[in-house]
């Protein structure tokens, strides 16, 4: 399991995190901000956080 933290006021809707998420967890809403569509599918790979140019998404792996 993973926690995905979004800092919406920094998100510019560039779509990088959406495009690189291997599990299609993320999507842009009608205002062009990212939101978590399928939290359960997240594998905490960190690809979204890695290349977000705006430091608007953080993923933390939860210890079981």
């Amino acid at each position: 399991m993973a926690t995905i933290e979004l800092i919406s006021k920094r998100c510019k809707g560039c779509n990088i995190c959406v495009a690189f998420c291997p599990k299609k967890v993320l999507e842009l809403d009608t205002l062009g901000k990212v939101y978590v569509k399928d939290q359960g599918a997240c594998i905490a790979c960190g690809q979204c956080e890695l290349r977000c140019p705006d430091y608007a998404i953080y993923v933390t792996k939860e210890e079981k």
Binding site: K9, G13, C14, Y55
Partner: peptide, 25 residues
């Protein structure tokens, strides 16, 4: 919050770069 953020002037974010600009990376 990440430890490297202490090296940012957080009150200046969000930065001015266009959506998708690589400069933030």
């Amino acid at each position: 919050m990440r430890t490297y953020e202490k090296f940012f002037r957080m009150n200046r974010l969000p930065h001015i770069w266009c959506p998708g600009c690589g400069n933030g990376i």
